[in-house]
């Protein structure tokens, strides 16, 4: 695209660090110039986080949020992947079930909150249920798409070698669809992380989302609010990057390579 300048790896580190530095500096100075009493400066945020760390509260909240996401996400995967595979493999089944899925899918998990609280009360189970909902539909949709997009040439070759339909599904269709399924899982994880914050704001009393809302409500501790936001961002990023590493495994990596 732009000039093919020879640049070392150091440049890749330099520019983002520069940008980040400028951002933090800009933040700091705008706080100073506007003499705001409420909005925290970068330093205040750092101190606030350190305090939480010392009180061991931060780790507990992080653990709670991660635990709920892990539980809800795994349940969604365990339920959604087989269902998605079945829907993709049996078009007749898909034709029957798909409209129901398409109607339920756009109902924001957050709109389910009152119902979730009604069923599960305020607490962990409600949060896990919401995360399950948030992840379930993207996973099912991605699995259906993955199976449908398996080139027919693979299925023909598998039939040629005398495999039974179930064997074809397990040994050919599933590995062939796996790259797309993993992308769907990664996106579902992203949505789950987004929703857990909402769920914790409204339906439970621990976790990073709760930390955000509580820090403000009980004491206008905006330093903790911003601190919690940053932690949410970093963990979300780590989850995303971690998942992308899985997508780079050799038996899956082929799915994202463009063959020219």
């Amino acid at each position: 695209m732009s000039s093919l300048a020879k640049s070392g790896a150091w440049e890749r580190l330099f520019w983002p660090l520069l940008a980040a530095g400028l951002l933090v500096a800009g933040w700091h100075y705008s706080v100073v110039w506007t003499a705001t009493k409420v909005f925290p400066s970068p330093l205040a945020v750092e101190q606030g986080l350190a305090q939480l760390l010392r009180q061991h509260v931060l780790w507990r909240d992080i653990g709670d949020s991660l635990r709920r996401v892990a539980l809800g996400f795994c349940l969604a995967a365990v339920a959604g992947v087989p269902l998605g595979l079945a829907l993709g493999w049996y078009p007749a089944l898909n034709q029957v079930v798909n409209p129901a899925v398409q109607l339920l899918r756009p109902i924001s998990p957050i709109a389910w909150i009152p119902v979730a609280i009604l069923f599960f009360g305020v607490g962990d189970k409600a949060a896990v249920f919401l995360i399950f909902l948030a992840a379930f539909f993207p996973i099912v949709v991605a699995c259906v798409a993955g199976v449908s997009n398996v080139p027919s040439i693979f299925r023909r070759a598998a039939r040629n070698f005398g495999l039974s339909p179930l064997q074809i599904l397990a040994r050919v269709v599933f590995p062939a669809a796996l790259p797309q399924i993993l992308v769907g899982l990664r996106i579902a994880l992203g949505v789950a992380w987004l929703v857990v914050v909402a769920a914790e704001m409204l339906a439970v009393d621990s976790g990073l989302g709760y930390l955000v809302i509580d820090s403000r409500n009980s004491g206008k501790r905006y330093d903790l609010v911003v601190g919690a936001m940053l932690v949410i961002g970093l963990i979300g990023l780590a989850l995303d990057v971690g998942f992308r590493q899985v997508e780079k495994l050799p038996s899956v990596r082929w799915g994202s390579r463009r063959e020219s």
């Binding site: 080139p151 040439i153 693979f154 070759a157 070698f161 050919v172 590995p175 062939a176």
Partner: peptide, 15 residues
């Protein structure tokens, strides 16, 4: 499997 078809391209399993 007693008569196997070899395709023009993309016949091998990439995974």
């Amino acid at each position: 499997p007693r008569r196997i078809l070899v395709f023009q391209e993309r016949g091998v399993f990439p995974w």
